[in-house]
């Protein structure tokens, strides 16, 4: 991936948690433009933040020489966020979600990002890189009611 911020619906940043606020601002603006109210905008922003934070922390191990891209697309009333990376593939749909009562009993920490993504978005898809396409793509969808 190359950093190409000239594309209006795409933002590419270094893999650095310092960039999260810029990604959030970008996604919020796009979600507002699409017609979502504050509540849904906040949910979409949160889901994208969780996905990017996981990439930065776990997939890329905070290697800020690497890049990730967030691309906004739409189909009819579907708001579609694509998060692109070159790290080792990791499918969030294969992760077992924590039961919160048990989670609070053992006073665990972490592991909530994917649960949040699933709770606030309507659909999550994952396409790992392959021999034809070296980019992993996480797709988060939210329907505009």
């Amino acid at each position: 991936m190359k950093p190409d911020n000239s594309i209006e619906n795409t933002i590419c940043t270094a893999v650095d948690s310092d960039e999260l606020s810029r990604i959030r601002d970008f996604v919020k603006l796009k979600a507002e433009d699409f017609g979502f109210g504050d509540g849904d905008c906040n949910k979409i922003v949160l889901a994208v933040d969780e996905a990017c934070s996981n990439l930065i922390e776990h997939a890329y191990k905070k290697d800020s020489t690497k890049l990730l891209c967030v691309e906004i697309d739409s189909f009819d009333k579907e708001f579609i966020v694509k998060i692109l990376d070159n790290a080792i593939p990791f499918d969030p749909s294969n992760v077992e979600l924590p039961d919160m009562e048990k989670y609070f009993k053992v006073l665990k920490r972490g592991g909530l990002g994917i649960k949040i993504m699933r709770l606030v978005m309507d659909e999550i898809l994952y396409y790992p890189s392959n021999e034809h396409n070296p980019v992993n793509t996480l797709i988060l969808k939210k329907h505009l009611n």
Binding site: S53, R109, L112, I116
Partner: peptide
Amino acid sequence: YISSAGLGVFM
């Protein structure tokens, strides 16, 4: 704004 990383501090 708060994300799960922020919640994790309290946990």
